[in-house]
Amino acid sequence: MTDTPNTTLEWIGFIAEKYSDLFIRGTWLTLLISVSGTLIGFVLGYIIGIIEDTKINKEDNIIKKAILGLLKVISKIYVEVFRDTPMIVQAMVIYFGIKLAGFAIEPIPAAILVTLLNTGAYMSETVRAGIKSIDIGQREGALALGMSPISTMFNIILPQAFKNIVPEMANTFLTNLKMTSVLNVIGVQELFLMAKTAGGTYYKYFESYLVIAIIYFVLCFVFNRIFLFAEKKMSQQKNYGLAVEYMENTQ
């Protein structure tokens, strides 16, 4: 080895270049897990949030009441368990639990599963708060037209709740992006594990982890800007033009 780096700075460059394949693959995997886990987790969070917000109606038939009651209990337990345990432990328990139960599971699907379950638990609370933030009057306005409670939820309440919780959703995604680093414990080759591998050969851990620190930072920074921009776009209300064709009848 003729061109062994001397300074720390040179080492950083060296590691980054030599293991660029690893870092790139790690980045993709980190993105894959956090994006898919977050998106599916959002859907789960919405479902749980809606279940928790749905009231059991005295007039409903027994079966409907029983199913809804059961769903409510399950979702309560699920949310509580996932909020009260660390993600790194959840990863171990789920991964090895599934294996123990006799099912083959690869680290990547397991990682996505852990991320989505974690996201769902947190999002359900956010969704519920979002639903609560829409004044009851709009719900009553819809019901008074004869709209069903479900149609009211999907056409009136959720679109507005969604808008209110977009910042929280963005936040959750960024948290997930960073939290995937703990998933190295189940052997997913995301960024963190790649840095560990790259650093190990030359015992240059600082340099190697600094490389992924920069990658995490850039990813989060860029996504953050995109979300801020999207939020701004969403909250802009266009000025309306008067519909001049109907002007003559104005009072």
């Binding site: 109606n57 007039e59 409903d60 009057g137 709009q138 009553e140 306005g141 819809a142 019901l143 008074a144 037209l145 004869g146 709209m147 069903s148 409670p149 009136i156 679109p159 507005q160 808008k163 309306y240």
Partner: peptide, 28 residues
């Protein structure tokens, strides 16, 4: 009737205007 469906249909024939308007804020 007590069923949700019956209530919906009845409400579609008996409208209500509220003190606080209760328009849908997300719609024109």
């Amino acid at each position: 009737g007590k069923k949700q469906k019956e209530t919906n249909e009845y409400r579609s024939k008996v409208g209500m205007v509220f003190q606080s308007f209760n328009l849908f804020n997300n719609k024109t």
